[in-house]
């Protein structure tokens, strides 16, 4: 049986193609244009956002949620949030999500070699104990929420993460449970 994993995982920039009709930009209402502009700098040329904007208010609120969870100030480092997001995307099988967030992880001074191995070999690849604890928690909570346990939280605290940081990691995993499902079931990754 085919799987969205079969495409393979890369840190290179990928394209994305929709499986359902998208909004034609010239037919967009002023409100739809505004939601696109609030959502992502390239949303007006992105089939993904042009598909989602057909439910404009739902997209508006989801974009606010996404942006505060991934880019909000303080709390967990941006690199740690991106690590959680990419690990979950790798397990769920969303090559597009994984490539975008692997790139962001590296931009945020995350270890590029670690990320390349995570993409190529999977989330079990070797990594320092602190990152291991973040990835293990993210993978469990992402796959089956009830699989994560108190000992996962205690392990994160043991590596110096505050509860505010652990909540941010949790939010990143929750957001990517959402993002992976939209991205990998409404269309597919393409090679440019």
């Amino acid at each position: 049986m085919s799987s969205t994993h079969d495409f393979g995982f890369t840190i290179d920039t990928l394209g994305w193609e929709a499986w359902a009709p998208v909004l034609e930009l010239e037919k967009a209402t002023p409100d739809e244009i505004q939601v696109l502009e609030e959502s992502h700098p390239q949303a007006k040329t992105s089939p993904y956002y042009l598909l989602l904007v057909q439910e404009a208010e739902v997209l508006r609120q989801r974009s606010k949620l996404f942006n505060t969870i991934m880019y909000g100030p303080r709390g967990a480092s941006r690199a740690d949030r991106e690590l959680a997001a990419t690990a979950e995307s790798r397990v769920n099988g969303c090559p597009y999500c994984a490539s975008v967030h692997a790139q962001r992880f590296v931009q945020m001074k995350g270890d590029r070699d670690l990320m390349l191995r995570l993409l190529a070999e999977g989330v079990e690849t070797e990594m320092p104990a602190r990152q291991r604890a973040i990835v293990d928690y993210s993978v469990k909570l992402g796959a089956t929420p009830s699989a994560a346990t108190r000992s996962d939280i205690e392990r994160l605290r043991g590596h110096g993460l505050t509860d505010a940081e652990i909540l941010d990691i949790t939010l990143s995993v929750a957001m990517f449970a959402n993002a992976n499902r939209l991205m990998q079931t409404l269309g597919e990754a393409t090679r440019p």
Binding site: L59, I153, T170, A177
Partner: peptide, 20 residues
């Protein structure tokens, strides 16, 4: 799709908050 994705988001947030 948004609805299903949203409830999957909420399920993980609830589980994580319970652990915290």
């Amino acid at each position: 799709s948004q609805l299903i994705a949203h409830v999957n988001y909420e399920a993980r947030l609830l589980a994580g908050l319970r652990l915290l």
